[in-house]
């Protein structure tokens, strides 16, 4: 399966298992979603469980919160993460706080799916990575898969989870892994181990990171598309790096991070999102606090620049092989 099919399969599995799971969003019903993630679901489960909504993100999330309070398990879609901001009040002030402010009387078991990230010439409003806005909010979980297998297992876990979850889907790798070489032919998921996806139910627990490649020379912390970009760079450079796919940003798998950095003594953090106050800053602080005496070089962050996402200059902006390669040289400079 590609990632779209895996995500579709996760919703299919969950809708079959739990009559309270409903899917809603702009164009998700009859049409099956602008990325086809919900294709066939309305025909299979009916219009009362899979339906199109008006174009109002604050309405979509506000209504989902009310449905969650009733006892349903809504899976609303925001068409692009760039358009999640109108729903910010409902997510931050309501979904995230409902359990806390009602001391557990009311909850928001909602899973907000949203395609995110760049690398597709999406320009300013089809490329953003707003995860750092949500990792700053107590009460929500933030999940980002990097393979079809993980996407399905994590999405099932997110839907089953009783806390509100932001599920950001890296749309650059919907159809195949991407190593950052935009000028080479694109690959698809067939042949990639992450593309082997069981048709039935399985789950990958939230808050568990995955060691994508074991290594001794340095630790790379990444998620989404950047996992594949980092892997490509490492293989080309022949550096024995340990790549950790974080998968869940909050609550994060701190043990996996700590064990790796204490072993390697070096840490590089890579994300597409802009640098200042991005999630990389939190990761850097955590590593510094917990692994200080093991660090042999300053922690490196390779991120998007602190600018809006550009259109024509995308490949200068994107933290691709060139930029990661330079950071790699820097962090490995004193390695003997």
């Amino acid at each position: 399966m590609n990632m779209i099919q895996a995500i579709n399969s996760a919703m299919d599995v969950m809708m079959a298992r739990d009559a309270d799971v409903i899917v809603m969003g702009e164009d998700v019903g009859y049409f099956g979603g602008v990325f086809r993630a919900t294709a066939g679901l309305q025909a299979k489960y009916g219009k009362r469980r899979v339906f199109d909504t008006p174009i109002t993100e604050c309405g979509i999330i506000g209504v989902a919160v009310g449905m969650g309070a009733y006892g349903l398990r809504p899976v609303p879609e925001i068409q692009f993460a760039d358009y999640i901001y109108p729903a910010l009040d409902q997510l931050v002030s309501e979904a995230a706080r409902l359990r806390y402010r009602s001391a557990g009387e009311f909850t928001s078991p909602i899973t907000v799916r949203s395609p995110f990230g760049g690398g597709i010439f999406g320009g300013q409003t089809h490329s953003q990575s707003p995860e750092g806005i949500f990792t700053h909010v107590s009460g929500v979980k933030t999940v980002i898969p990097s393979t079809p297998y993980d996407a399905k297992g994590l999405l099932i876990a997110a839907i089953e989870d009783n806390d509100p979850t932001l599920f950001f889907e890296p749309k650059r790798i919907y159809n195949g892994p991407f190593d950052g070489h935009w000028d080479r032919p694109s690959k698809n998921w067939s042949g990639h181990p992450g593309g082997e996806v069981p048709t039935g139910y399985y789950r990958i627990p939230l808050s568990t990171a995955k060691v994508v490649r074991a290594g001794e020379a340095l630790t790379i912390l990444a998620y989404g598309t950047m996992v594949h970009v980092c892997r490509g760079v490492i293989e080309e450079a022949g550096v024995d790096a340990e790549i950790i796919d974080l998968r869940t940003l909050v609550p994060i798998d701190i043990d996996a991070i700590e064990a790796s950095v204490k072993k390697t003594g070096r840490c590089m953090i890579v994300h597409e999102a802009t640098r200042t106050s991005g999630f990389g800053a939190e990761l850097s602080a955590l590593v510094q606090e917990r692994c200080f005496y093991h660090l042999e070089a300053p922690i490196e962050r390779v991120t998007g620049f602190d600018t809006p996402y550009p259109h024509s200059l995308e490949w200068a902006y994107f933290p691709g092989p060139v930029r990661i390669g330079e950071a790699l040289k820097k962090i490995m400079k004193d390695a003997s």
């Binding site: 469980r49 009310g66 449905m67 009040d89």
Partner: peptide, 22 residues
Amino acid sequence: SISGNLATQYPQAVGWAMASAA
């Protein structure tokens, strides 16, 4: 549960009602 953020309960009530109907 009452929220300090004004009018947020409005779409929530609609969602609850939609759930009841569904």
